[in-house]
Computed example of a mutant assay.
Amino acid sequence: MPLSYMTDHRSVRKIVEAGIGVNHTTVWRWRHRFLKAAAQDNTATLSGVIEADETFFVRSCKGHRGWVKGRPPEPRAARPRAWGTTKRGLSDEQVPVLTALDNAGGVYEAILPSLTAIETTLDGRIAPGSVVCSDGTAAYVKAAVKAGAEHRRVVVPTTTPVTVKVAPLPTKRRQKGRLGLGRVNAHHGQIKALVNGRCRGVATRYLGNYLGWHRAMLHEGFTGKALLDRALA
């Protein structure tokens, strides 16, 4: 499989159609050998100004043949990918992904068993003296205090007041140095575009591989050969 195809998130089908003489199964298997190695690369310790937040992906058994063979992987009927969840709001049908990144370009991501694991997941990942920005969830505050860091709560409005909709206020220039969650939210938008858009959904068991792929792509001068070298290291 030409390694250059790993730099533009080309689908397995597109790679096979390129006429490289390798079948679908082989391309898929080799891709995940590379991505499994990338999934293990996370920034060990974040420092400086750190933004932390979580996002959610629908729990997926994409590609599983259990329903056909009478051994479903989950106690539910098979459903089309576009259906999403059957329950409103947060539930066990969604998988939380924690992202923490600092202003030096360090990124740490983890797929959580539940939101109660935020504090333990960040244990040892935050350098003393750092400033942790979050939405104020207690787990982030505890993680920052435990690490000897400062915590800043960033209030993000979820609704627009009716008065603002009727008479919009003039746009104000963002104050230089003001803390927020813009970078981590943008990062979540990028991984959602990759997983849900470019890849049209991935099985939850392989979600970590694709998150690692995206982190690898963030490195300056990234090439497909870098993934190969990491896999063979």
Rank of each mutant, 00 (worst) to 15 (best):
L90C: 13
E93W: 07
Y108G: 01
A233Y: 00
L232C: 10
D92Y: 13
P2S: 13
R215A: 06
R79V: 15
R65V: 02
R81P: 02
F34M: 11
W30K: 13
L112V: 08
R200Q: 11
L115D: 11
I118K: 03
I50S: 07
W28H: 07
R29I: 09
Q40W: 10
L218N: 14
I111P: 05
V97E: 06
E220H: 09
V58A: 02
M6D: 08
I191A: 06
N196T: 01
V166G: 00
C61H: 07
V164N: 04
H219M: 11
V202Y: 07
A82W: 15
G136N: 06
I20H: 11
N185P: 07
V49K: 03
D41M: 15
C133L: 12
G70W: 01
W30L: 14
C61S: 12
A139G: 13
G221Y: 05
L228Q: 09
A100I: 02
D8M: 12
R153Y: 09
V184A: 07
A110R: 08
G177V: 04
E119C: 11
I118M: 04
A18D: 14
S60H: 05
H187Q: 05
L98D: 01
T45I: 09
Q40G: 08
P80N: 06
L207M: 03
A37R: 02
A226D: 12
V156H: 15
G148V: 04
R59M: 10
L90K: 14
A38M: 03
P73C: 12
R88S: 14
D135L: 08
R198N: 11
R230D: 07
D8A: 11
G208N: 11
A233K: 04
A138W: 12
P128G: 09
K87M: 12
H9N: 14
G221W: 02
H188F: 09
A117I: 03
M217I: 04
K62D: 07
H24F: 14
L228I: 00
A110Q: 10
D102H: 01
P75S: 01
G136S: 01
G221K: 03
V195K: 05
D229N: 04
E74V: 13
A139C: 11
Y5D: 10
N42L: 12
V107P: 02
A52T: 08
L35G: 05
S60I: 05
R88E: 14
